[in-house]
């Protein structure tokens, strides 16, 4: 694969100014264009810091010492942020914190970046309507952003990130406040996203296992495992204290294995293992 079609982290280390320890320690990883990369790990393991580097927020907005390299689709978020920034959509952990605070309505908030880009009103209206429908916010378009519930606010943050049609989407725990159906709809939507490279931090292990091409596991600032969901969860050390997918738990207790000897991590793999056993 061409170098400019890949995401490559090479010995990436990050230390915030004034901090004794590095938040990221010699992280090396690869992924391909169009892939969904699920980033998992417990608190303080470096997940959010990694998102901030991938989004270029570090060091362009938050100052930090960076060593090693991070190249995403031929661009460096560290050294070429203006170019890189135009390619990305970012959803931060606190959705309310990333809204403009200047929009009177949900529709205006979604249109904010598009207006700044000088896009025509017709195109803006179409894109806003389309994204609102995708995020289940059509009925809320005329409401004020402040009137939304936590889950709706997260969907608005996602809508503002995707309305610019980014080629790279970086999301830090985007479903934490969504209700079960909202979460399910979000992951169904994400599974069908085309031509976008996605980095998503989430604790929704079951959903990630179904949609992610790659799982990166963070622990103490290090990337300790990377691979397909099946490979990662079959070899993930219990000492990491990260829960396994429910399909894996069910199959492990019932001794249902796939033909390759691995335990299933997705519903379709569970069905395959179950059918093979019965």
């Amino acid at each position: 694969m061409d170098e400019d079609k890949r995401i490559t982290l090479d010995n990436l280390s990050v230390r915030y100014r004034g901090a004794e320890d590095a938040q990221l320690k010699n992280v090396s990883a690869t992924a391909s264009i169009g892939q969904i990369v699920g980033i998992i790990g417990n608190s303080h393991t470096g997940k959010s810091t990694l998102c901030r580097v991938l989004a270029g927020v570090i060091p362009n907005i938050i100052s930090a010492e960076i060593t090693g390299s991070c190249e995403v689709l031929g661009h460096s978020p560290v050294h070429e942020w203006p170019n890189f920034n135009s390619l990305t959509g970012v959803v931060l952990q606190n959705p309310a914190g990333q809204l403009s605070g200047l929009a009177d309505t949900v529709a205006d908030e979604m249109a904010f970046d598009l207006i700044n880009q000088g896009i025509s009103e017709d195109v803006i209206n179409k894109r806003v309507a389309n994204v609102a429908a995708q995020m289940g916010l059509t009925d809320q378009l005329v409401q004020t952003p402040e009137s939304l519930s936590g889950g709706q606010m997260q969907r608005l943050a996602i809508a503002t990130a995707i309305v610019t049609q980014p080629t790279i989407l970086i999301m830090d725990d985007p479903t934490s406040e969504m209700d079960p159906l909202g979460r399910q709809q979000f992951f169904h939507w994400l599974a069908n996203v085309q031509s976008t490279t996605v980095f998503i931090v989430s604790s929704e292990i079951d959903d990630l296992s179904e949609i992610a091409d790659r799982i990166w596991v963070m622990d103490d600032g290090q990337l300790v495992e990377q691979g397909t969901p099946q490979a990662v969860f079959n070899y993930l050390d219990a000492d990491r204290q990260i829960p396994k997918p429910t399909a894996y738990q069910l199959a492990a207790g019932m001794n249902w294995h796939l033909s390759n000897g691995a335990l299933p991590v997705t519903p379709s793999e569970l069905k395959e293992a179950y059918d093979g056993k019965n």
Partner: peptide
Amino acid sequence: VGLLPPKVMELTSML
């Protein structure tokens, strides 16, 4: 009411 069952039930229903 727009809820989902526990994940284990989603999986066992599929089986």
